[in-house]
């Protein structure tokens, strides 16, 4: 190998990106050639220089990216519960094992929204079926009364699935959706009900249901969906009060991020106190940064923290 060939190979030699055979040839040349050893030394100095580049990632940027991603994924999963991602808790697993319905008093039927495919018909109710009661969704024995002739009278409460369809203007449909938001134990159904309802949040009763969901629903995916519906009512006093509470108390950072975004879309002095509380209590650096910016923009003190 001559010097020119060695010099050309030095960078790849440095990266360890050449064959063992080539490496040996270079090294044997280096032991004999002072000029190439010097060139290697210069190359090493150059590499050391590159390694001194000191550009750590801005931690705020990283936190913001992570929060954005989390929020986007939760939102996507919430709008497509079929995917099986359990950001919503085990949405699907539920239908198979759980007691499926708590039926609100006065509801006439259950809204069977698309994907609740499995129905609950445990083997122990097989006898009921043969007695002519077709496919009970959920049955409950209320009383058992044997008589002297050897007959037994059993009072059974049961629920059947029925598909009810109609437009949102139909009060029956609306009532079913509202009760599904409040009563349905399957979070996937609650999300889908909210997705339909949220476009009608101008109705007081719907808005209240969304406020209740964002404040009390145990599932973060459902709370996020409800928040989405409340976005355009950021100036409504009751909505603001609920969102301030969410911002301070919700245990899910993704929900808090969304809450501060909605709350601050309509900026007024009434949220100063809330933002100051955020500065004291919040761990998530994205949310803190937002609260700080907003306080600064409103020329309010950031508070003691």
């Amino acid at each position: 190998m001559n010097c020119a060939e060695v010099v050309k190979q030095i960078p790849m030699y440095g990266y360890g990106e050449i064959s063992a055979e080539m490496e040996e040839r270079i090294e044997s040349h280096l032991t004999e050639c002072e000029a190439c050893r010097e060139e290697l030394a210069r190359h090493r100095a150059f590499v050391d220089l590159l390694d001194e580049r000191d550009e750590p990632i801005d931690p705020t940027l990283l936190t913001t990216c992570r929060a954005d991603l989390r929020r986007q994924i939760v939102a996507e999963t919430a709008s497509r519960p079929h995917t099986g991602w359990n950001w919503l808790g085990s949405v699907r697993g539920f239908t198979a094992f759980h007691i499926p319905f708590r039926v609100p008093v006065g509801a006439i039927a259950l809204v069977a929204i698309g994907w609740i495919g499995a129905h609950y018909a445990p083997a122990r109710f097989g006898g009921v079926e043969t007695a002519g009661l077709v496919q009970p969704m959920f049955s409950n024995v209320q009383s058992v009364q044997p008589d002297s002739s050897g007959n037994v009278s059993i009072a059974v409460d049961e629920v059947h699935r029925r598909v009810v369809s109609g437009t949102f203007d139909d009060p029956r449909i609306r009532e079913l959706l509202l009760s599904a938001v409040r009563e349905e134990s399957n979070p996937g159904v609650r999300v889908e009900s909210i997705a339909v309802l949220k476009d009608s949040a101008d109705l007081q009763v719907v808005r209240q249901a969304l406020i209740d969901a964002v404040s009390h629903d145990p599932n973060p995916g459902v709370r996020l969906k409800a928040l989405e519906g409340l976005k355009q009512y950021a100036s409504d006093a009751a909505v603001r009060k609920a969102l301030a509470n969410v911002l301070l108390k919700d245990d899910n950072a993704g929900v808090r991020v969304q809450a501060i975004d909605v709350l601050t879309a309509h900026s007024d002095d009434s949220i100063v106190g809330v933002l100051q509380d955020v500065m004291q209590k919040e761990d998530d650096s994205y949310i803190r940064a937002r609260a700080r910016n907003l306080l600064e923009a409103m020329r309010a003190s950031i508070g003691t923290y």
């Binding site: 990632i57 990283l62 992570r66 995917t83």
Partner: peptide
């Protein structure tokens, strides 16, 4: 569908990506 697992995957690479 394990969200935690996905988040751990993200965190293994996200600083490098950024």
């Amino acid at each position: 569908g394990d969200a935690d697992a996905f988040e751990r995957l993200v965190r293994a690479y996200d600083q490098s990506v950024l």
